[in-house]
Amino acid sequence: MVGIAAGRGRDRIAVEFDPLDGARITSLVAAGREWLAPSPPRDPEGGFTASGTGGWDEVVPTVAACTMADGTGLPDHGDAWRLEWSVVASGPATSTAVVSLRSVPLQLSRTLTVEAGRLRADYVATATGRAGVPLLWAAHPLFAAPPGTRIVTGAPEPRLVGEFPEAGSPMAWPGGATGRGGIDGVGGALKAFTTGLDRARIVHADGQGLTLRWDARTLPHLGLFWDAGVFADQPVVAIEPTTGCRDAASAVEEELPVVSPGRPLRWWLELSVDDADADDAD
């Protein structure tokens, strides 16, 4: 396990990830609270959800298992989560890990850096073969969602297009007593996509929140996920910036960015702690 941390008191942020388990971020403590759902041990030869899901995974080069136009088969939630990553540089507040995928000729590098109240992740995807690789990458943080937890994108709320349980149709924002975007109004699991955003928030019932910002040029789409306990062992929500607007890379292959030999693709995410009274329209 690799741990990095910075800041003091409420501004302290501490992150742990496991290079032997797909570099999964297993703990994200900020503002005195653990934000991620527990990540139980899993079998890399099994299915992604076979042992329950939690933590924060790197999902690449697809979310849903599919077959690309050239016949390449891509496994469920890609293969970065199945592989051991190599830590190539590490310090008290930063760590870089890399992995070479099996399904496609691609290497992915991730550098995590923390400072008071903030986590930044910088990515580099490099083609290792002679041909370009269409890249579907998605962040996959599963945030613990106790009653009253909401996803907030600001006003006006964007239109959602459903992906699960039904793909391709407009989907209403879920909601309950705590308002739209809340886990309280979800009876099963819901996944939807939207576009045109560069930030979103998770907010707990006490008003404490995290804001996730991202490089919208490389990540023009956003997946949103609410699960009342269907796939995860407890209610979770997810904010998933991504290069593609579908879970199956084959469904949007022509729209995906291509990582060409000698031309790495770079992008970033930043997560920051909000004040309890932060404006929902941020």
Rank of each mutant, 00 (worst) to 15 (best):
T128P: 13
G168H: 14
E115K: 01
Q107G: 09
A172S: 09
L83G: 04
L106I: 08
F164A: 15
D76K: 07
L135T: 15
L106Y: 06
S95F: 01
A167D: 14
T153Y: 02
P134C: 01
P105R: 13
A89N: 08
L135G: 12
I183W: 12
G179D: 08
V114E: 03
R180G: 05
D79C: 09
V104T: 03
P75S: 10
L83I: 02
G182A: 10
P75N: 08
H140V: 08
W173K: 02
T153I: 02
P156G: 14
A172K: 10
Q107Y: 10
I151Y: 00
P75L: 10
G78Q: 12
P170V: 03
G179A: 04
R110M: 03
P141V: 14
G154W: 06
P158S: 00
E166V: 13
V124F: 10
V133F: 04
Y123P: 03
P75K: 05
R130Y: 15
W81G: 04
T153A: 05
V104M: 03
A125D: 02
R159N: 05
L101S: 13
A177G: 15
F164L: 15
V114R: 02
W81N: 03
T72D: 03
E163Q: 09
V99T: 11
T113Q: 01
G91Q: 08
L160I: 11
E166Y: 12
S90Y: 00
W173P: 08
V152L: 09
T111P: 14
G181Q: 06
T149S: 05
S95V: 01
G129V: 03
D122I: 00
P105I: 12
P147M: 06
T149E: 04
G154L: 02
T178S: 12
G175I: 04
G154C: 02
T111C: 13
D122F: 00
T126P: 14
S109L: 01
A89Q: 07
V133K: 06
R102H: 11
P141M: 13
G132V: 07
A144E: 15
E115D: 01
T111R: 12
A80P: 10
A131I: 11
S109A: 01
A138I: 08
T96P: 05
D184K: 11
I183Y: 11
T178Y: 13
Y123T: 01
P165F: 12
H140Q: 11
G168L: 13
G117Q: 08
R180S: 06
S169V: 13
R118V: 05
G71T: 10
V87Y: 00
A125R: 05
D79L: 09
E166D: 12
R82H: 07
L83N: 04
G181L: 07
